[in-house]
């Protein structure tokens, strides 16, 4: 509780930073004829964790996947409205999706390391983008990323072993290392702890708080405690609309909307 107070205290300072990383206005998403999101307007700020909460099927994951255009691979999915990353429309023709995904990393619900060595998992992103000039530089990037993901100490003696051989929590931290190896501006996390045990979850949450220093983080979560613990800003989604958004502290202590209040007090969802 004290820790939460402390983080939210810092959050209000950071929220003052002028230009948000993501500025989204009137985002609507359609799957074929069905509308999944209606007029979502939300800003994602740098050096902050923004959590998206809401009952299952409310559209929070759909919104998250708009931010790195992961919805592109779903047939019949259509996005309207404007999503600006540093003032650039990411759905504009001039925005290359590969470049976008290098700037906006993603961590998925289930840990999904490549069935390759731990080193190769982290090295893959820098390698395809040609970030490292030579082998030593690549090794430094991998080292650094694993360090930041808090995994280095556990794996430094077995970098050539398959990433799939790690425990669930380690795999998820490997995936985080893989995401930060390409130095993105924003990291999207889609329920990153839902497949993990409480101890592994705690490690990931600590990690998220550390990563906030370098990245803007958006996290979708089902756990309201988690949202309260790790995030500075929270958006509450319900039935495809963004009901309420604000500082995490305010949302959890003094929600403006009745539906938010009902959800966070456990009356539905």
């Amino acid at each position: 509780m004290i820790a939460m107070q402390a983080t939210t205290g810092r959050a209000t300072d950071a929220a003052a930073s002028p230009v948000p990383a993501f500025m989204t206005r009137d985002v609507c998403v359609f799957y074929g004829q069905k509308q999944a999101l209606t007029n979502v307007s939300l800003d994602i700020h740098r050096n902050q964790v923004t959590s998206l909460i809401g009952p299952s099927g409310c559209g929070k994951s759909t919104y998250l996947r708009c931010l790195n255009r992961m919805n592109d691979i779903i047939d019949g999915c259509r996005v309207t409205g404007s999503i600006l990353l540093d003032g650039q429309d990411i759905y504009a023709g001039s925005m290359d999706v590969v470049h976008l995904r290098a700037r906006v990393g993603m961590v998925f619900q289930k840990p999904n390391p490549f069935p390759k060595s731990i080193f190769e998992n982290v090295a893959y992103g820098p390698r395809i983008h040609g970030i490292a000039k030579d082998k030593t530089e690549l090794e430094a990037i991998v080292h650094n990323s694993l360090e930041k993901a808090g995994l280095l100490a556990e794996v430094k003696d077995r970098m050539d072993q398959p990433g799939t051989g790690l425990s669930g929590g380690q795999q998820q931290r490997l995936c985080i290392a893989r995401a930060i190896a390409v130095q993105p501006e924003v990291i999207l996390m889609d329920e990153p702890c839902s497949a993990l045990d409480p101890i592994a979850t705690a490690r990931i949450e600590e990690l998220i708080d550390e990563l906030r220093e370098h990245f803007a983080i958006v996290i979708v979560t089902h756990s309201m405690q988690q949202a309260a613990r790790v995030s500075q800003r929270t958006g509450f989604f319900h039935l495809g609309i963004l009901v309420e958004t604000g500082d995490t502290e305010q949302i959890f202590t003094n929600p403006r909307d009745k539906r938010t209040q009902d959800y966070i007090t456990g009356r539905f969802g």
């Binding site: 790195n68 992961m70 691979i73 590969v98 470049h99 976008l100 995904r101 290098a102 990393g105 993603m106 961590v107 998925f108 289930k110 999904n112 390391p113 490549f114 069935p115 893959y124 992103g125 395809i128 983008h129 995936c175 893989r178 995401a179 190896a181 390409v182």
Partner: peptide, 18 residues
């Protein structure tokens, strides 16, 4: 092949072909 592998690769910015 599980779709999560494709998502993982696309997520770090691999092109479809990569």
């Amino acid at each position: 092949v599980p779709p999560s592998i494709r998502e993982a690769a696309l997520g770090v910015g691999a092109s479809k072909m990569q």
